[in-house]
């Protein structure tokens, strides 16, 4: 077992390669999911406090994000 992990003397090159790649994959997954969770909570709080009309406008603004005319905000003004 110890011999396997020594990798014929190359352990210091092989295992860091695995740690770096898999560590990046794990790290970015955890940070994405954490951020997603936090953002969902923030959005839920905003939606709870907002009147229905505003909620629809926020969603519409999202969908029409690419439209040329400024959306939502302009209609509200």
């Amino acid at each position: 077992m110890a011999e396997y992990f020594a990798m014929g003397g190359f352990a210091w090159f092989i295992w860091p390669a695995y740690v770096v790649t898999l560590g990046f994959m794990l790290g970015i997954t955890v940070s994405t999911l954490r951020g997603l969770k936090a953002d969902r909570r923030t959005l839920a709080e905003l939606e709870k406090g907002a009147p229905h009309r505003q909620r629809r406008q926020a969603a519409a603004g999202m969908t029409a994000a690419q439209a040329d005319a400024p959306q939502g905000v302009a209609r509200d003004a």
Binding site: T32, L33, L43, L46, E47, Q57, M62, A77
Partner: peptide
């Protein structure tokens, strides 16, 4: 997952803009 996060993030931004407008 990241796309979902971006969509939620943009909705939050939109809400804040509307809120500032009101």
């Amino acid at each position: 997952w990241r796309m979902e996060r971006e969509i939620v993030g943009r909705k939050i931004r939109q809400f804040r803009l509307l809120r500032a407008q009101a």
